[in-house]
């Protein structure tokens, strides 16, 4: 409950922030929403030398549709902004479904999507959503800027692809080309619980035929898992019952769950399968 000592800087511009990160490299940890970092610091699971608080950097709180149709989410866009967003609308159903399921309402007031991706908790929900949507992260440093696909951004449990001195300033979601169908299903025992299993599904159809499919899994591996085989069988299909079943089977196969107090390996696999089926073939839920 009492963090160890650290130094603290709250830069007032992006340049200032990048300069600090360039100067301090590995010693520095970026503080955005802080809803994962501060708990870890409080419990002394993390003891950074320097916290670079970017909350005073102007112009990072946005989420907007660019002229190209790409959805851009700034590093200080809070979960709550997405929960009550007018921008996501019907075009981004997977994101709209996931936003209210992140942590709890108070945490959503401060936590950020970009921060959640950087934190790379295997039980984090946003990484699955972004994997399903083929999202990207924009990283900038004093040296320049690069765009990293989320598939390459998360490199391991609690590890990301940022280099020392780099700051993730934005997440991007490509524009949907067809009719989007998307859900995020999360098995949690109560609000604020980590997902026992989470399944993000984002499919686009054109004249009833799937043109793009994204499926990603939460809580069933060392990281969020993009179920590429399960995605592949959907493309070109009309979302018929047999294809959905096959996709669900492949998604369950892609999962690498571990038995723990949240459930057995077999159970989690089974829920992945069930959730993929439900997400693709929505029907009235049996139990609310």
């Amino acid at each position: 409950m009492y963090p160890a000592r650290f130094r603290y800087e709250a830069p007032r511009s992006l340049d200032e922030a990048l300069a600090l990160l360039a100067e301090h490299g590995d010693e520095a940890k970026v503080l955005a929403g802080g809803q994962s970092l501060i708990p870890m610091v409080k419990l002394r699971f993390a003891s950074p030398e320097l916290l670079v608080d970017i909350n005073n950097v102007p112009g990072l709180g946005y989420h907007r549709e660019a002229a190209s149709g790409v959805l851009e989410i700034g590093a200080l866009c809070r979960h709550v902004d997405l929960e009550f967003s007018d921008v996501l609308g019907d075009l981004r159903p997977t994101m709209a479904a996931a936003a209210p399921l992140i942590a709890d309402p108070i945490v959503r007031n401060r936590g950020t999507l970009v921060g959640s991706l950087c934190h790379a908790d295997p039980q984090g929900d946003w990484a699955s959503v972004m994997l399903a949507l083929d999202g990207e992260v924009v990283a900038v440093s004093a040296a320049g800027r690069r765009v990293i696909p989320v598939t390459e951004f998360v490199t391991g449990p609690f590890q990301n692809a940022l280099r020392p001195g780099e700051l993730a300033v934005e997440a991007r979601v490509p524009v949907p080309r067809g009719v989007p169908l998307g859900r995020y299903l999360k098995l949690e025992r109560r609000v604020g619980d980590f997902a026992t299993v989470g399944v993000a599904v984002a499919v686009e159809t054109s004249d009833g035929t799937v043109t793009r499919a994204g499926i990603a899994l939460t809580g069933v591996g060392a990281n969020n898992i993009k179920a590429v085989d399960a995605e592949r069988v959907l493309v070109g299909s009309t979302l018929d019952r047999a294809t959905i079943a096959e996709s669900a089977r492949l998604a369950a196969e892609a999962a690498k769950p571990r038995t723990d107090h949240r459930g057995s390996e077999a159970y989690k696999r089974h829920v992945v399968r069930t959730f993929v089926e439900r997400a693709l073939h929505p029907r009235p839920a049996v139990a609310a």
Partner: peptide, 8 residues
Amino acid sequence: LLPDRVWE
């Protein structure tokens, strides 16, 4: 009665 126990 966790979901996994009920399912099992």
